[in-house]
């Protein structure tokens, strides 16, 4: 699968190979140290960020923190009505 930046494809391939190996052989077996792929990830990440800037792709609306839809967590217990949780 291609990267959004054409010149990032090779870096992506290298990072994906590193990640897949660490994920199945390391992380899923209890090894949480992911520093092995960090150097290639940094270079790949920079390349992707550059491509995003060039293509004017902004992530402002999703924020910087990971989100897993927790605002919908009470949907199933509220009869189909979904009231997102708001931070006070």
């Amino acid at each position: 699968m291609n990267s959004i930046g054409e010149d990032c494809n090779e870096l992506k391939k290298q990072y994906d190979a590193c990640f897949n190996s660490w994920f199945s052989e390391g992380f899923l077996k209890g090894q949480t140290d992911d520093s092995g792929c960090a150097p290639i990830f940094r270079v790949y990440q920079e390349c992707v960020k550059r491509a995003m800037r060039e293509q004017k792709i902004e992530l402002r609306e999703v924020g910087s923190e990971y989100c897993t839809g927790s605002e919908y967590d009470n949907a199933s217990s509220s009869g189909g009505k979904t009231q997102p949780k708001t931070k006070s």
Partner: peptide
């Protein structure tokens, strides 16, 4: 599906984000 990129990744509290 045209492209797919990982833009952030970290292990936190034993979980992969």
């Amino acid at each position: 599906v045209l492209t797919e990129d990982t833009i952030q990744r970290e292990v936190r509290d034993g979980k992969l984000f």
